[in-house]
Nucleic acid binder design. Structure first.
Lengths: 188, 188, 188, 188
DNA sequence: AATGAATGAGGTTTCATTCAT
DNA sequence: CATGAATGAAACCTCATTCAT
């Protein structure tokens, strides 16, 4: 049941994400988080020793959920293009379904809160996606291009388009175009 | 001469951008801006009646410079693909050359400072780019696709890739790939 | 066995004293006391109804131990100077041996925690010392001087010198000088 | 005019000292200091970047005033005993006249606020007193005793006795006994 | 009795904004 | 216009105390 975490940590994470969606990261105060989570200010500090820790842990958590979503089934024994399409669609679906999370990921990354260890902790999560793209190159379906460059492209493109699609009354028109664009951009 | 505006407004704008680059938008305080610009705190309030106004006006200014850059020469009498390539390259060059501005644009857009009128003010600046893409569709060189969708794609893609390229020791390897990717993605 | 009280009260007292030594009285929090004593926060409140009560009771306890130490054997049938010397040495030994207690006594006395009843409770404990000094005056060995003045002198002097001695690598050099100084100061 | 410093720093120092006298060092909050000094909370932070800095600077200031008082005229060409008496009396007078300062010096030294550099900064101020005592030893008027030990003795003794005297209705009875006691204690 | 999560008042500090000079 | 000290609301965080288990 999204939005109602059962543990206190999840409760606080949810409250934080809802706030980020409403007022942006810089509008997030510990007091507001507590009120949103319907707990006392001090309680937040039982679970996170500072605002910085709260945000960094939330970042890692969201990244894990995110990369879990898009990495799912990427090494199945299916034709490359099928998996590429699935990956693009999962990517887009995550951005559309977990909008507050997406906003948070974007805003947090360029905030004074990020710590080096957090960035490190999320390294390596891209492995499955990285391997898929490698396979595409090996099968001579994708351009010979730096894999990290490709990943950056996919992330930026799908992220931005998701924001656009989200504002449209009829979304179906666009969702299918996303993976097509990505495919055409990277295919040989 | 970039970095040294001659009027006070430009001086303050420059100071703000340098700060955003260093500490992020949420690290920007009016006192820090004043100190960076080597003027008194109160002086900032002579030129901008609040922090909100300062940031919003800076946003409009940067957007104008930005769209000016990428709109330049777009209606010349040249083959479409030539103009498309030029546009992509200008786009990328702006992102690379004016990095603080880019950071600011991104961070400001998802901040509690944006006002509706600012967003309105920058509408319409996309006209030249929009017309170029229309021409591409008319000439049956580009996909039949919502123009705003295409613009969103270009913005997200090039912006993200610029961030990537900026971190690379050798940038030349990548700069040419950007417009190619964009072309392949949108071409029919 | 010093340092390991058997009852919970003593356990808590020990923990408090260790904390005072490490971080000073203002660094003492009920949570820190509980953690140091390896019990739960709430447990402290079973034995002491507030921080104030804990500290005041500890103060009385330490004062009792302290005055017990220096009053021991003061009314024996021995020459005055012998008893005076013994008293000074006991005084100094207490300060050196029970350093955390000493720190606590000093810091607590000038804290907002002291209650009037605590100060009252430790009145009268000076009786034996007071009587010894009276005897010295009767025997015309000590100056004719307000007894409370003398006690204040002894306390301040020995306390301060103990702090000094504690920091010296070789303490033996100084310990014997303490009682001599006190004797010379007060003797007729 | 004591109690009404003309600069803001002095105003804040005075307010702090008055508070320490009333409620002890741990009762001193920045808000209380501001209110006592009749300025806004934020104003305190213009002059002192933190509570720690405020207290440490106050400590150095008071120490300077203190050592200035007792060092005055110590190297004049007068008989040793005359200077020793003068020094003791100045010492006592300072403690009696600047009672809040005295309380502060005592409480601050054993607080979590002291920084190493502050302690360093007040080293060396004892030079004149130190030289006086050296002279006393050279002239074979004082015991052969570690000078720092003597200084510790004087400080602890006079400080403690000052506290006692302060509470007496008739102070004159005691003031003359202080230097006598110190002299007898240290003289050969 | 024992636990330790939860509370919320209060303390420290920052910062947008004002105003006397 | 320019200054920068002053303001005070609001942010972050701590900690004495309570209470359900």
């Amino acid at each position: 049941m999204k939005g109602k975490g059962s543990t206190k940590e999840e409760l606080i994470f949810d409250a934080t994400l809802r706030l980020v969606e409403q007022v942006g990261l810089s509008g997030v105060s510990m007091e507001a988080v507590a009120k949103q989570a319907k707990i006392a200010t001090g309680t937040v500090y039982i679970y996170f020793k500072s605002k910085e820790e709260l945000l960094n842990k939330l970042y890692v958590t969201v990244k894990l959920k995110f990369y879990g979503t898009i990495s799912d089934g990427l090494n199945e024994d299916k034709p490359f293009k099928v998996l590429f399409k699935k990956m693009c669609n999962d990517y887009l679906r995550f951005f559309l379904e977990y909008y507050p999370e997406t906003i948070f990921l974007q805003q947090f990354y360029n905030s004074p809160y990020v710590t080096a260890s957090t960035v490190d902790a999320t390294k390596g999560l891209l492995q499955p996606l990285s391997e898929l793209l490698q396979r595409g190159k090996t099968e001579m379906l994708l351009k010979e291009m730096d894999t990290r460059f490709m990943i950056t492209f996919l992330h930026g493109t799908i992220g931005q388009l998701a924001g656009f699609i989200r504002d449209q009354p009829v979304q179906k028109t666009y969702t299918d175009q996303v993976w097509t664009i990505c495919w055409d951009a990277l295919k040989l």
